Simulated scan of single mutants.
Amino acid sequence: MAPSLRRGGTFESVNPVSGLAWATCPRATQQDVDDAVAAARRAFEDGPWPTSTPLDRARLLRGLGDLVAEHSEELARLPRLVTGWEASRRPFAEPWPVH
């Protein structure tokens, strides 16, 4: 955990169905948020993205897509842990209404 995120402490994310904690998360302060936004702005303005070519950007975005696909099962489990929704109850259905 980054030292700056220690200011706000941590909290446990609890699965509402099982009542079990599944993750310990940093509790960000307003200063943590401000610092993160400032760092992101600096990285965008001073980093390689603004001057990169469309081809370079496409390669990076495809790499991100590959990582998402590679970890899709793990990523698909996260909403279930947070909301307590169980896929076995309603396979292939969304855990929230779609409007």
Score class of each variant (00 low, 15 high):
A2M: 10
A2C: 09
S4Q: 15
L5G: 04
L5S: 10
R6F: 08
G8T: 13
T10S: 14
F11R: 09
V14L: 13
N15E: 08
V17N: 00
G19Q: 05
A21P: 07
A21T: 01
A21V: 08
A21Y: 02
A23D: 13
T24C: 11
P26K: 08
A28G: 05
A28V: 07
A28R: 07
T29V: 07
Q30G: 08
Q31A: 14
D32Y: 01
V33A: 09
D34T: 03
D34E: 14
V37C: 11
A40K: 03
A40R: 06
A40I: 10
R41S: 07
R41L: 10
E45G: 04
G47C: 11
G47D: 06
P48W: 03
T51S: 13
S52Y: 00
S52E: 09
P54I: 05
R57S: 02
R59W: 06
R59S: 10
R62E: 15
G63K: 05
L64R: 03
L67I: 03
E70W: 00
E73Q: 06
L75W: 01
L75A: 12
A76D: 11
R77V: 08
L78M: 11
L78P: 00
L81G: 04
W85L: 00
W85F: 02
W85I: 00
S88D: 11
R89S: 11
R89L: 15
R90C: 12
R90Q: 11
R90H: 05
P91L: 09
P91Y: 01
E94Q: 00
P95V: 09
W96M: 10
W96T: 03
V98H: 03
V98N: 04
